[in-house]
Amino acid sequence: MLARHDHATSWLQAWSDLGRAPRTIDAYARGLAEYLLLCEREQIDPVTAKRSHVAVYVRELSARPHHRGANVISLDSGSGLANATIQQRLVAVRLFYDFLVEEGLRQSNPVGRGRYVPGRRRSGGLQQGLFPRLTKLPWIPSDDQWLRVLDVARREPVRNRVMLALAYDAALRREELCSLRTDDIDPAHRTLRVRAETTKNRLERVVPYSAPTGVLLSSYLAHRATVSRARGPLFLSESRRNHAQPLSLWTWSKVVRRIALEAEVERFSTHTTRHLCLTDLARMGWEVHAIATFAGHRHTDSTLRYIHLSGRDLADKLNRGMQHIHAWRIQTLTSEQMPTTDGVVHG
């Protein structure tokens, strides 16, 4: 599909030349290919397409059944595709039209962006884009669900156990975890170097891991030497087909998915450990800037999406507050003198 559109090929090549991550290029290519396929089917010239034509694409995405059907874990768009997936598809189309505008092939971008409009008080002056963006709190398991996951995980091979431990201890994203190399580990200080090229926003960071994880890591390194003594990728495949090759992202996802199903915690994913770690740091009283540094976020706005308190935490806070209010109201009812909210009694 993309090969039939010279402008699309040129745009993707430009992004590749700029050093964008291969997975990012692949995601953009798939999103744009879907849009171009719709244009071809509807007999729309993508170079001259209008906002109404892009709206047809949005409508199709909103109503499209998910290709995984009954295997979909959760939906947040009210349809087959999640809100975040639809937003990702639109990003590819919007960036493609940015390219066409820069090349002088168009005057404006039909996808557009949310922009400030004077007088729109209710929305803070921000005009909504083509499709509403939903920002949901990340899901984390309850204590019982986490224990069920750990009960299954403790029967896993040492490689899988240490990967799960590091994913939680250091709040690692899937790619950051699977891309660790033997020289990224500093056992003397119990730290990991997360290289910039493996991170989402190209920010390198050094993060600690716990002493129990260090013991487990030492056991894995001894086991790894029986698979390969070569330095390089830390986590290696032990299958017959890919023996001693770097463990792929998809293999790790399958491992976590299998653990989740066996533990009957289907929402548990490779990113859940990161959510849980950052939330636990917030519960321990870490400042938001410290958590942002630990997580590798450029802005604290991103960190705040991860930091949410469980219903139990909120209930405790509410209970403590209500005890004070209740005591004041009872005092008001039982005293002949009139107390105030600051505790001063007036005759």
Results as ranks from 00 to 15, higher is better:
T9H: 12
L12Y: 05
W15T: 10
R20E: 09
A21T: 09
A27M: 06
A33H: 02
L36Q: 08
L37P: 03
L38T: 03
C39H: 07
I44E: 13
D45P: 08
V56P: 05
R59N: 14
S62I: 10
P65R: 07
H66Q: 11
N71E: 15
V72F: 08
A82N: 02
N83E: 10
N83G: 03
I86E: 07
Q88H: 11
Q88Y: 05
V91L: 06
F96Q: 03
L100Q: 01
G112A: 07
R115T: 12
P118R: 09
G119A: 07
S123D: 08
Q127P: 04
G129S: 09
R148C: 04
V149L: 03
V149M: 06
R154Y: 12
R154H: 14
R154P: 01
E156Y: 11
L166C: 05
D169Y: 09
R173P: 02
E176C: 07
D183G: 00
D183A: 03
D183R: 05
H189L: 14
R190P: 04
T191Y: 05
L192P: 04
R193S: 09
V206G: 05
A211T: 13
A222C: 08
S228D: 10
E238A: 15
N242I: 05
H243T: 09
P246V: 03
S248R: 08
T251Q: 12
K254Q: 14
R258G: 12
E266M: 13
T273F: 11
L278K: 03
W286P: 01
G296Y: 05
T300P: 09
I307E: 11
I307W: 09
L318V: 13
N319V: 14
I330Y: 13
S335Q: 12
T341F: 15
